Amino acid sequence: QVALSRTQVCGILREELFQGDAFHQSDTHIFIIMGASGDLAKKKIYPTIWWLFRDGLLPENTFIVGYARSRLTVADIRKQSEPFFKATPEEKLKLEDFFARNSYVAGQYDDAASYQRLNSHMNALHLGSQANRLFYLALPPTVYEAVTKNIHESCMSQIGWNRIIVEKPFGRDLQSSDRLSNHISSLFREDQIYRIDHYLGKEMVQNLMVLRFANRIFGPIWNRDNIACVILTFKEPFGTEGRGGYFDEFGIIRDVMQNHLLQMLCLVAMEKPASTNSDDVRDEKVKVLKCISEVQANNVVLGQYVGNPDGEGEATKGYLDDPTVPRGSTTATFAAVVLYVENERWDGVPFILRCGKALNERKAEVRLQFHDVAGDIFHQQCKRNELVIRVQPNEAVYTKMMTKKPGMFFNPEESELDLTYGNRYKNVKLPDAYERLILDVFCGSQMHFVRSDELREAWRIFTPLLHQIELEKPKPIPYIYGSRGPTEADELMKRVGFQYEGTYKWVNPHKL
């Protein structure tokens, strides 16, 4: 086992960053958080920038500027975001240094004079007029057009580079997404736009490419001749908990499936790229999406959770019991969808996408189930092999396979070949997804960000279904809070070829 401390991990990262040409360590950078008073800024962006600063992973002359409508001070920003920093008493001095680099400007999102004030403020910072500028839009999409237009007109660096990070949702359907994309691309070049999907920053999602293309053993079996089906799962054990009003506007397909799960599907299904260059990788992902037809209604199961009468606390409440959810809402909190990649490698292999709230566990994984062994000599005792990439929690890679049961006879039983990170790298604290992705933006690497043509294809696949749901308002199937979801989803999976045995229990190697 390799035991690495946080300091050692960050030392390795620093070495990698400083050796590259793309990370300008000594240049002045300004990180501007648009929507600095909001939840995302408070819980994710400010803490992430602090962790990067604490670990010495930001360029040395980096300033952080918050911008929002609320009249706040840096002290206010500190008060609301610091509880999420997880700072230790030993880091007190470092924390003071961090907040000394912070400033805040209040202004409207659609007022040109406010942006001119913001620009004057940035120019007044040390070497601010020639600094590289990175704008993070932690804002609702309704203000994107006004904000990007004003940034472009008043706040661009004339000497350094300018980059803009856009948070999902990128529209509600193909038409609104196209409108937003066309607007942003009329102001910024594609190499300046970073559409963030934080799932692409997760260690195991990034590991998929290495697993596939750096190991000879997987190449020959990664196709329709050997793989019976692919299941991509995202499960949350909690409901909307008072935030249903926002969720109800989008629903589970827009929230998770059309982005996170579809991105994971691309990494499983794509061909080997010409290189690890950002556009070479994204070219292959677009090719996969172009091979997927629009979702067919007979390959869809929609569910909505109801309270568990035997549960406790939140578990007793259904989705419609959330006071922020519109009365009688038919918005799905669970969806199972089957897609097919219609190309030579994957023809006929079902890709089953499942996601839901208020389920029995927290889990995100990719599961490849292989065909049955031909010419069975073990009297149907063999179960199908599976390769599982567990994204969260407890990152893991393992192969479910058959071995001989101890004893006199040739009785096979299920076991696993474990390729888990935790076994080799004991207690290594890896940077989280937002840390990686923000560092990628500083480096100018777009590999783990969504390109406009990729986004367009993703919406093309799901828009007809979303429009049909909005028009017909089908009643989702009720499922109990804390269950596996509607049984109809299991029946759909069985119908397209997935075999669920229920006889195997994964042993978490992190707890051995």
Results as ranks from 00 to 15, higher is better:
Asp255Ser: 13
Val256Phe: 12
Val256Gln: 15
Val256Pro: 08
Met257Ser: 05
Met257Cys: 08
His260Phe: 15
Leu261Asn: 02
Met264Cys: 09
Met264Asp: 03
Leu265His: 00
Leu265Thr: 08
Cys266Lys: 02
Cys266Leu: 03
Cys266Tyr: 01
Cys266Gln: 09
Cys266Met: 09
Leu267Trp: 15
Val268Asp: 02
Val268His: 00
Met270His: 03
Glu271Ala: 06
Lys272Ser: 11
Lys272Ile: 11
Lys272Leu: 10
Pro273Met: 02
Pro273Phe: 01
Ala274Met: 03
Ala274Arg: 10
Ser275Ala: 06
Thr276His: 04
Ser278Pro: 09
Ser278Ala: 05
Asp279Trp: 07
Asp280Cys: 08
Asp280Val: 08
Val281Leu: 10
Val281Tyr: 13
Asp283Asn: 07
Asp283Leu: 06
Glu284Lys: 13
Lys285Tyr: 13
Val286Pro: 01
Val286Gly: 04
Val286Lys: 07
Val286Tyr: 15
Lys287Val: 03
Lys287Asn: 12
Lys287Ala: 10
Val288His: 02
Leu289His: 02
Leu289Val: 04
Lys290Arg: 12
Lys290Asn: 07
Cys291Ala: 09
Ile292Thr: 12
Glu294Ala: 09
Val295Trp: 03
Ala297Lys: 11
Asn298Asp: 12
Asn298Gln: 07
Val300Ile: 07
Val300Lys: 05
Val300Tyr: 08
Val300Ser: 10
Val301Leu: 09
Val301Trp: 00
Val301Glu: 04
Gly303Arg: 01
Gly303Gln: 01
Gln304Cys: 04
Tyr305His: 04
Val306Arg: 09
Gly307Ser: 07
Pro309Leu: 08
Gly311Leu: 11
Gly311Gln: 13
Gly311Phe: 04
Glu312Gly: 05
Gly313His: 05
Glu314Gly: 10
Glu314Ile: 11
Thr316Tyr: 13
Thr316Ile: 12
Gly318Pro: 05
Tyr319Phe: 09
Leu320Gln: 11
Asp322Met: 08
Pro323Gln: 06
Thr324Arg: 13
Pro326Glu: 08
Pro326Ala: 09
Pro326Met: 12
Arg327Met: 14
Arg327Asn: 12
Gly328Trp: 05
Ser329Tyr: 00
Ser329Pro: 01
Thr330Tyr: 13
Thr330Gln: 10
Thr331Asn: 09
Thr331Asp: 03
Ala332Gln: 05
Ala332Met: 03
Thr333Arg: 01
Phe334Arg: 01
Phe334Pro: 01
Phe334Thr: 00
Ala336Cys: 09
Val337Gln: 05
Val337Lys: 00
Val338Lys: 13
Leu339Val: 09
Tyr340Lys: 09
Glu344Asn: 11
Glu344Leu: 08
Glu344Val: 07
Glu344Asp: 14
Arg345Lys: 12
Arg345Cys: 08
Arg345Asn: 11
Asp347Glu: 09
Asp347Pro: 01
Gly348Ala: 05
Gly348His: 08
Val349Lys: 01
Pro350Glu: 01
Pro350Tyr: 01
Ile352Gln: 01
Ile352Asp: 00
Ile352Glu: 00
Ile352His: 02
Cys355Lys: 02
Cys355Ala: 08
Ala358Met: 01
Ala358Thr: 00
Asn360Tyr: 04
Glu361Pro: 01
Arg362Glu: 14
Lys363Met: 12
Ala364Gly: 10
Ala364Tyr: 14
Val366Ala: 06
Val366Thr: 02
Val366Trp: 03
Arg367Ser: 10
Arg367Gln: 13
Arg367Tyr: 05
Leu368Cys: 05
Leu368Tyr: 02
Leu368Asp: 01
Gln369Ala: 11
His371Lys: 15
Asp372Trp: 04
Asp372Cys: 05
Val373Gln: 14
Val373Asn: 12
Val373Tyr: 15
Gly375Gln: 11
Gly375Leu: 13
Asp376Phe: 07
Ile377Ala: 02
Ile377Glu: 04
His379Asn: 13
His379Pro: 12
His379Cys: 11
Gln380Met: 10
Gln380Pro: 06
Gln381Glu: 14
Cys382Met: 12
Arg384Cys: 10
Asn385Pro: 09
Glu386Cys: 05
Glu386Pro: 00
Val388His: 10
Val388Phe: 10
Ile389Tyr: 15
Ile389Ser: 04
Ile389Trp: 15
Arg390Lys: 15
Arg390Ile: 06
Val391Glu: 15
Gln392His: 07
Pro393Gln: 06
Pro393Phe: 01
Pro393Trp: 01
Glu395Asn: 14
Ala396Phe: 15
Val397Arg: 03
Tyr398Trp: 08
Thr399Leu: 14
Lys400Ile: 07
Met401Asn: 05
Met402Pro: 04
Met402Gly: 11
Met402Arg: 06
Met402Gln: 12
Lys404Met: 15
Lys405Ile: 15
Lys405Gln: 14
Pro406Arg: 09
Met408Ala: 14
Phe409Glu: 12
Phe410Glu: 04
Asn411Arg: 12
Asn411Tyr: 05
Pro412Glu: 04
Pro412Gln: 15
Glu413Ala: 13
Glu413Gly: 15
Glu414Ile: 10
Glu416Asp: 15
Leu417Val: 15
Asp418Ser: 03
Leu419Ile: 15
Thr420Met: 13
Tyr421Pro: 14
Tyr425Ile: 15
Tyr425Ala: 15
Tyr425Leu: 12
Lys426Arg: 15
Asn427Tyr: 14
Lys429Met: 15
Lys429Phe: 14
Leu430Ser: 15
Leu430Glu: 15
Pro431Gln: 08
Asp432His: 11
Asp432Trp: 05
Asp432Pro: 14
Ala433Asp: 15
Ala433Thr: 15
Glu435Val: 10
Leu437Gln: 15
Leu439Thr: 07
Leu439Gly: 08
Leu439Asn: 04
Asp440Met: 05
Asp440Asn: 05
Cys443Arg: 05
Gly444Ala: 12
Ser445Arg: 08
Gln446Leu: 07
Met447Asp: 05
Met447Leu: 15
Met447Arg: 05
Phe449Lys: 01
Phe449Asn: 03
Ser452Leu: 11
Ser452Phe: 08
Asp453Val: 02
Asp453Tyr: 00
Glu454Gln: 14
Glu454Arg: 08
Arg456Lys: 13
Arg456Tyr: 14
Ala458Glu: 14
Trp459Asp: 14
Arg460Glu: 03
Thr463Phe: 08
Leu465Gln: 03
Leu465Lys: 02
Leu466Lys: 02
Leu466Gln: 12
His467Val: 08
Gln468Phe: 08
Ile469Leu: 06
Glu470Gln: 11
Glu470Ser: 11
Glu470Ile: 05
Leu471Asp: 08
Leu471Met: 03
Lys473Ser: 11
Lys473Val: 06
Lys473Asn: 10
Pro474Ala: 06
Pro474Thr: 11
Pro474Cys: 09
Pro476Phe: 02
Ile477Lys: 12
Ile477Leu: 11
Ile477Pro: 05
Pro478Asp: 08
Pro478Ala: 06
Pro478Met: 09
Tyr479Asn: 01
Tyr479Thr: 02
Gly482Met: 03
Ser483Lys: 05
Gly485Pro: 03
Pro486Arg: 01
Thr487Ile: 09
Glu488Asp: 09
Glu488Trp: 03
Ala489Asn: 02
Ala489Arg: 01
Glu491Val: 12
Glu491Tyr: 07
Glu491Lys: 07
Leu492Met: 10
Met493Asn: 05
Met493Trp: 08
Lys494Glu: 13
Arg495Trp: 07
Arg495Gly: 08
Arg495Glu: 08
Val496Asp: 07
Gly497Thr: 14
Gly497Cys: 15
Phe498Tyr: 13
Gln499Leu: 07
Gln499Val: 08
Tyr500Val: 14
Tyr500Asn: 14
Gly502His: 14
Lys505Trp: 08
Trp506Glu: 14
Trp506Asp: 14
Trp506Gln: 12
His510Trp: 11
Lys511Gln: 13
Lys511Ser: 07
